[in-house]
């Protein structure tokens, strides 16, 4: 018993330490967002601002059109998530249940693309999009992100686990393949689909590099890119940047608290970080 209590104590201690390290940057962000410009850079660091400068928030919102960025972020996140779910469901079903010539090879090639680092793809993708004339449009922000090999792989594995007899039964009952997919397979795959959607929403909301490259105008910027507005020639206005950042992460934090159960399950399922 004593040994057990000890090991439990150790585990809790380590977890607490880990949690503290994870939370510190967030606390620092919030703290900095309320500081005066002098305090932000003060040495030694000031943890609790002498005066709470809530004005930083309104100032941040005034400097850059965050309402526009927010709308862009929402549009991009929602549409690319819906798009990815659609393509994933169709592709995963085809790879799991429809026999066609060369299926395994096509799938192996798809999996192979996962090995290519996304940074390598930036330039060719950019060139392709600029040839299509899509630069600085929603199309550029959304369409390249409406398919994910990883998501297809995940869902395909899930579909494999659904007994074949279920589709036989449905077929005998007069249910077409397409209908079977939407009426039976999709409801069954809900846990996997929620995982896929959550990972997508988080990634899409936080995406920085791609939106930075394919957008030129303020009209098309998303929130993470918009944050760069505080980087001026005269230096970085940290207190404003932190205030804006706090606002940007808020929706994700809310999402996390609501969907915590699914996110944890999803990360455990995929063996990847979110």
């Amino acid at each position: 018993m004593a040994k057990e209590a000890l090991s439990k104590g150790t585990i809790y201690l380590l977890l607490t330490l880990g949690a503290v390290f994870m939370v510190l940057p967030f606390l620092w962000m919030i703290s900095s967002s309320l500081k005066s410009p002098n305090e932000v850079m003060a040495m030694p660091p000031v943890w609790i601002p002498s005066q709470l400068n809530w004005d930083n928030y309104s100032e941040a919102l005034r400097i850059a059109p965050f309402d526009k960025y927010f709308i862009n972020s929402v549009i991009v996140t929602v549409l690319s998530t819906i798009g990815e779910l659609l393509t994933t469901i169709l592709a995963a079903y085809a790879f799991a249940r429809i026999y066609f010539y060369g299926r395994e090879i096509v799938f192996a090639v798809l999996l192979g693309t996962m090995m290519v680092p996304s940074e390598v793809l930036l330039i060719p993708n950019f060139v392709t999009l600029s040839n299509l004339g899509w630069i600085d449009s929603y199309k550029a922000l959304i369409i390249p992100w409406t398919a994910s090999v990883f998501a297809i792989f995940l869902l395909r594995q899930f579909f494999f686990g659904v007994p074949k007899e279920l589709s036989y039964a449905a077929k005998v009952d007069g249910c077409s393949e397409f209908r079977f997919l939407w009426y039976v397979m999709v409801p069954l795959a809900k846990p996997a689909l929620i995982t896929i959607a959550l990972l997508k929403v988080i990634n899409s909301w936080n995406a920085f590099l791609w939106p930075l490259i394919v957008t030129n105008s303020q009209e098309m910027r998303t929130l993470p890119v918009g944050l760069s507005a505080f980087t001026t020639e005269a230096g970085i206005k940290y207190e404003l940047l932190m205030a804006a950042s706090s606002m940007v992460v808020l929706p994700m934090l809310i999402l996390f608290f609501i969907m915590q159960k699914y996110i944890v399950a999803g990360v455990a399922r995929t063996g990847l970080k979110g």
């Binding site: 007994p163 007899e165 036989y168 069954l188």
Partner: peptide, 9 residues
Amino acid sequence: FQNYALYPH
């Protein structure tokens, strides 16, 4: 079927 093949949802 042997495994019943009911729609679980």
